[in-house]
């Protein structure tokens, strides 16, 4: 920040106020954290099976659309409608994850390229669907109240912010991921394939089945992340000129959280608050919002370079011991 001739102290104060300044800001910050949690979970879950899911962005977009569509097209009592919309979002995301999963498992196609391509396919297809459904417009109708995650109680508590029940869904999914990975046979197999797929194969596990399964579950998490935006924050869907960025930030969340469920909570809290808090920086300190994106990108970069830092530390230690 010093390089770019801005006052870092006012910048940080603005950031701080943006995150914790008043109860409204806290509410909005928590709201921002919920999709980050789910995107982070999605990336982390795939990583644990040795897969790099860059497609979280696309899976999130189709999830968003599926949730919004179900929210509009059906008229059901809340107790059925809301879960139905959530499941639809998860299913759409899972479907989007299924394709690269199957291609990876059966044809050994690298999942990174396929998921990137699927992102763009999702973006264009969803935009086209929105256009068709809204009769040439750029926006879907608002979802019905019965499918909404909005909560007056949480909203009132935080000075009429857009905080919604989504955060509980997201936290529940953290538990689900922990449970799958640590407490079930499937989770054990998934992790084994991630560590060493040959060894897993010798042990009689089907690497292919687990790869597909991991991508499907990862996609479902991402789809739910889209549902947060559809049913909670925005309540509708507009056609998009570019990506939301949540899926890519999810990579940073997962990396920082070391791909563990608990770590993802920390990562999502950090990046979610940074991202929302940064919105306050242009007003209070005149610093462009993008500073936070720069920070997030640098974090990814340095985590990727972590190897050399570790090597450096080990060398330092060895030198000390020699002396």
């Amino acid at each position: 920040m010093l390089i770019s001739d801005y006052n870092p102290i006012t910048g940080y104060i603005a950031l701080w106020n943006g995150i914790f300044g008043d109860s409204y800001a806290i509410g909005e910050t928590i709201r921002q954290i919920s999709p980050y949690l789910l995107a982070g979970l999605a990336v982390a879950f795939a990583f644990r099976t040795g897969l790099f899911n860059i497609g979280v962005e696309g899976q999130l977009i189709v999830g968003w659309f599926a949730a919004a569509y179900v929210g509009i097209a059906f008229d059901l009592p809340k107790i059925i409608h809301l879960p139905f919309a959530l499941i639809a979002a998860a299913a759409a995301g899972a479907l989007w994850g299924l394709v690269p999963g199957i291609l990876k498992a059966t044809l050994k196609v690298h999942e990174v390229i396929v998921t990137i391509m699927m992102n763009y396919i999702a973006l264009h297809v969803v935009n086209a669907l929105i256009k068709t459904l809204s009769g040439g417009g750029f926006k879907l109708e608002r979802i019905h109240q019965s499918a909404s995650l909005r909560s007056e109680f949480l909203s009132n508590l935080t000075d009429y912010s857009t905080l919604h029940y989504g955060i509980f869904v997201a936290l529940a999914m953290v538990v689900v991921m922990w449970f799958i990975l640590e407490k079930t046979k499937t989770g054990f197999e998934l992790k084994s394939v991630g560590y060493n797929d040959n060894a897993a194969r010798y042990a009689g596990m089907s690497a292919n089945k687990n790869i597909v399964l991991a991508m499907v579950i990862s996609g479902a998490f991402a789809g739910l992340g889209g549902a947060m935006e559809a049913l909670g924050t925005f309540g509708n869907m507009s056609s998009m000129g570019g990506f939301t960025g949540i899926g890519f930030d999810g990579i940073a969340v997962a990396l920082l959280g070391a791909n563990t469920p608990l770590g993802v909570i920390f990562g999502a809290t950090l990046f979610g608050s940074l991202k929302y808090g940064a919105n306050n920086m242009p007003n209070e300190a005149g610093i462009p919002v993008e500073i936070v994106s720069i920070i997030i990108a640098l974090v990814i970069f340095f985590v990727a370079c972590g190897y050399i830092i570790r090597v450096g530390l080990i060398r330092l230690r060895n030198k000390k011991e020699e002396k």
Binding site: I54, I251, A297, F301, A304, Y307
Partner: peptide
């Protein structure tokens, strides 16, 4: 630095 090339590219 032998970083994961995909991750570095994303960054």
């Amino acid at each position: 630095f032998r970083a994961d090339q995909v991750v570095s590219g994303v960054a």
